[in-house]
């Protein structure tokens, strides 16, 4: 029995088919990347898996239990969390206050350690909208990791970050994932970063799965190269 499984995930808005019949399996300690060109449906995919968007059809299983219709709060309590592409933090609270608030609700045993790993110690007592954007993204990520969720869905954690911030962010993700045995889904645009960080990769194109497997396989896959990677891969 797998930890987290999405089967036949389909999302349609009227006549528009955002996602058609996408499958995914997430295992503890495995970082699973999802890449694809713009409009491939990557964000819709995370929205569907996290419960933010209603699926037209398909199921989501958590350790075999069908959680497709479970509300967002329930999922968080049972170990499925997510981060956001457009930074979603509490702008007028200090970093410390908002993280403590989320930690209070989600029983985090080592908040200080988490904050230290993500480099948030210098800004703990600053109000969130007064810190650098890159640091805000780290706060967003921290909120998703509090309480040791078993499954973490990360929606473009590197969005809006410069090159070295991006490298650091992905390194944090990989380290935290391995250390805490978390099953991570990583939707990203930064293809090099994904190939560096992920153990498995799924490529989406126009709402369907183009290919899925280990980074080396994906890199060599002619369909993927043609549709997305080009010869630079």
């Amino acid at each position: 029995m797998t930890l987290f499984q999405g089967t036949g995930v389909t999302v349609r808005y009227g006549a528009v088919k955002a996602l058609t019949d996408v499958d995914i399996t997430l295992e503890p300690g495995v970082v699973h990347g999802v890449i694809g060109p713009n409009g491939a449906g990557k964000s819709t995919f995370i929205d569907a898996l996290s419960g933010r968007t209603r699926m037209t059809s398909g199921t989501v299983l958590l350790e075999g239990e069908d959680i497709t219709n479970r509300p967002v709060g329930w999922r968080r309590h049972h170990g499925v969390s997510r981060s956001f592409q457009r930074t979603s933090v509490f702008n007028s609270m200090t970093v410390r206050t908002q993280l403590e608030m989320v930690a209070w609700r989600n029983d985090e045993p080592d908040l200080d350690g988490l904050m230290a790993t993500l480099g948030l110690e210098p800004v703990l007592d600053q109000v969130c909208n007064e810190i650098a954007y890159g640091t805000q993204r780290s706060v967003d990520l921290a909120m998703a990791l509090i309480g040791s969720p078993r499954v973490v869905l990360l929606d473009e954690p590197c969005a809006g970050l410069v090159a070295d911030e991006s490298v650091r962010m992905l390194q944090h993700v990989r380290d935290l994932c391995k250390d805490r045995g978390v099953a991570a889904l990583l939707v990203e645009h930064d293809v090099d970063g994904v190939f560096r960080t992920c153990d498995r990769i799924t490529v989406l194109n126009l709402g369907t799965v183009l290919a899925s497997g280990e980074p080396a396989e994906i890199r060599a896959n002619p369909d993927v190269v043609r549709a997305y990677l080009g010869s630079a891969a």
């Binding site: 933010r52 709060g73 968080r76 956001f84 979603s88 702008n91 989320v102």
Partner: peptide, 21 residues
């Protein structure tokens, strides 16, 4: 803490729900 929760709801209700509140 309840007051902080209220503030959180006011500021970013969606994130509060996604954080389990």
């Amino acid at each position: 803490r309840f007051g902080t929760v209220l503030e959180g709801i006011r500021e970013n209700e969606e994130r509060m729900r996604f954080s389990g509140f």
